[in-house]
Amino acid sequence: MKILFAVLLVSAPAFAQVDFSGSWAPLYHEDLPDRIPGPELGDYLGLPINDAARLRADSYDADRISVVPEYECRPHSSDYSMRGLANMRVDVIRDPVTQRAIAFHTRMNFQEMERTIWLDSRPHPSEYAPHTLQGFSTGSWEDNMLDIYTTHLKESYLKRNGVPRSDKATFTEHWVRHGNYLTVATVVTDPVFLTEPLVRTQTWVLDPAQVIARDICETVAEVPKAADYVPNHLPGTNPFLHEVADWYGLPYEATRGGAETLYPEYRKKMGKPEHPRDHCERYCSCGAEGQICLSPTAAPPGKRP
């Protein structure tokens, strides 16, 4: 009996209970228009943002990505990259002696994002250490669920339409594997821009045939500009903020976001749209069954002659 117990101790996986290694492809059945092709300008619905985040997003001018070279090759931050805008490979890093899993290492093809999730209980760096877009992540097991805590993030975005996420934010993730499916729940806490945590979920499917290719990016000054020019909309001058309400037949106030717009009860107090829609014209069912998401050419109803 003692021998059996000793054998069990030696062979038991002391660190990793579930193996996430392999190649994973994102599934887009959740939040498809938000992820592929991407969020509409001025769409903050369902985000528990404060007034500071709202104005920061209103001021955002997407020209910044092309005009300011430093943004050209910047990858997503790890809280956003799990939204699945690129395919992912997960490798296990093992201690060469014990063969225990000491970390998961992820690589995504977009901008070659790489991230390490440490499983060996190492401490997070000091408050004075550099921050990175992928942050510093440590994982621990809760039965077969991997709980991940990430700190030391660089400033980035909650959405690609300029809704900010500060470098004081942290996030937790919960990775659960169901056969060939991986569910990732991400909970972002940001004392600077959020009034309550932002929770999002994503699903991945195992895709052994997939290859994560190189994605080499070099910055180049594409547009001549003055050195002190940063594209931005002065407060109250962004002409695009009503488009999402007009396209989708929503009350403008609902698109401004805030914690209450997270919850179903908000539908009861949500007002009526300025331009109600009788049918879908924008990004209708695209992405499903291979349909391509093309930008419509018609103007939003409120802008039509």
Partner: peptide, 23 residues
């Protein structure tokens, strides 16, 4: 790589930074 690291910048006050933080 990925627009971070490389040259590090020690600020007058605060944590160690790099190009992206200065931007």
């Amino acid at each position: 790589k990925t627009q971070e690291g490389g040259t590090y910048v020690i600020p007058g006050h605060g944590r160690i930074c790099d190009d992206a933080d200065v931007v």
